[in-house]
């Protein structure tokens, strides 16, 4: 084998190695790019989930649930509803006057 042939083959190997390195670098770059995109995509989704959780918590904090008959909550501008408490006799008497009368005859709608 002549020297020029050996040089040619060696040059071919070097070139092939360079191409392989370039392809590997590109693939690595693609993977890194995808990984960056995937991480930022998940971060956006998680940020949205955090906003939802915060809003849910805010709504829960501004909500009072009345479960015991005869209890009430009081609201004033700019404050959260008060904790449920029993109606006073005076309040109950005032409210009794406006309770719907379920014994009234049904309207004639014809």
């Amino acid at each position: 084998m002549s020297l020029s042939t050996r040089n040619f083959i060696a040059g071919g190997f070097v070139l092939a190695a360079l191409i392989a390195l370039a392809v590997a670098a590109l693939a690595e770059s693609d993977t890194r790019e995808h990984d960056r995109e995937n991480r930022s995509t998940l971060a956006r989704a998680e940020a949205m989930a955090d906003e939802i959780e915060a809003l849910h918590a805010e709504i829960q904090a501004s909500t009072v649930q009345l479960t015991v008959p005869g209890t009430a909550t009081i609201l004033t501008p700019g404050s959260l509803p008060s904790e449920p408490r029993e109606l006073t006799d005076e309040e109950r008497a005032a409210m009794e006057t406006v309770r719907p009368d379920t014994s009234l005859p049904w309207p004639t709608t014809e």
Partner: peptide, 24 residues
């Protein structure tokens, strides 16, 4: 339930059954 809505204050009360959810 019964609600008393006045200027500057509201009272919301459960009478029977339930629950009632009151949110600001």
């Amino acid at each position: 339930f019964v609600s008393l809505v006045e200027a500057g204050q509201e009272t919301h009360a459960l009478f029977t059954g339930g629950p009632v959810l009151v949110t600001t």
